[in-house]
Design a binder for these strands. Sequence first.
DNA 1: ATCTATATACCGTCCAGACGGTACAGTCCA
DNA 2: TGGACTGTACCGTCTGGACGGTATATAGAT
Lengths: 187, 187
Amino acid sequence: MAERRNAGPPARDRVLDAYETLLIEQGPGGATLDAVAASAEVSKGGLLYHFSSKESLVGGLLDRLRERSALDAERMRSDPDGAVAYYLRTSVPGGESPVGLTRTYLAALRIADGSAAGAPAREALAAVDADGLAALREEVGDPVLSWLVQLVGDGLYLRTLTGAPLTGEVSPEELHARLRQLIADRS
Amino acid sequence: MAERRNAGPPARDRVLDAYETLLIEQGPGGATLDAVAASAEVSKGGLLYHFSSKESLVGGLLDRLRERSALDAERMRSDPDGAVAYYLRTSVPGGESPVGLTRTYLAALRIADGSAAGAPAREALAAVDADGLAALREEVGDPVLSWLVQLVGDGLYLRTLTGAPLTGEVSPEELHARLRQLIADRS
DNA sequence: ATCTATATACCGTCCAGACGGTACAGTCCA
DNA sequence: TGGACTGTACCGTCTGGACGGTATATAGAT
């Protein structure tokens, strides 16, 4: 294998990281091949070596999303505090993100439009939701309550997307406490 | 006022409608001036007569968002079944949409990226959220619970955005019933 | 040991087409 | 007459993508 010119992770991963960042921070319009290449400190030719077209770049992002979703679901199931605690902990913007799912999810959301081009992204996102809901249901039993928990997490995601400051009056922790209490009462 | 050549609402509104539709269905990339004009059955010159630039088109959309948000908050407060019922009813994709807020909100979401260009959209969306939360709080009292209700509604919105089919196992109605029950227990 | 060949991992430039925007002459009612 | 458009032509910029080139490593033949 050839020695890498630039430091850090391999170029392919850096490209995907840069693509995610640009999608989140600038939207699809800002995530041009030139911008991605520059941000990843790779030439445009280099980018196109790893991803032969923009469609293939999208494909790479969605592969990463599926991969990380599987890893995340595994972590949910094996978390010492339970799946719900893990899910809520990782849904809040500033929170931990052990496998980087949140970032990738948010990036994929940006390219999931209603057109035919957005269909693969929508399907991948739907699969992530299904994975999460399944893991939640194993713990929560009550289907209505587990869906409710997931929707609250999604709502928190959406807030991240709009960049809303998560209004200070009620903290996410209080919200989580209430949710846990609801689950305890029902089970 | 001059007689209109095409049927239906005035050209200016048709342009805004078309812009919304294209943003939702194709994302920002599909909502070009040419595409918007074609979809509104207006010439490009005609579009630029009403909105002299793309920025001004965005401005028109955000004005409409603010306008509809105010109207929607008013309806929430005066709904015979209460603000919560109204909010949840209008958050579900297939549901009623008396003032078209949902469509406009979803469209604005598409242009609310993290860049400087997306800032006005983010601010307008944050204001809509604040309006809704305030109206909810007047009825629910408990701040944690009212935030929870709003986040569930937002989660439903996000599902619309990804085009996920709202999995059949639990219906939105069951979810709403549970939420109303939660509020009744607490108040 | 050296020469040749092939593969990997990039770099930098060029181009056709699409995009936002301008300009302007003409048309259709009220 | 003038407001509300239509239609066409055009321009500068940006974008995705094609392409040819370069540096390094490995493998096999001689």
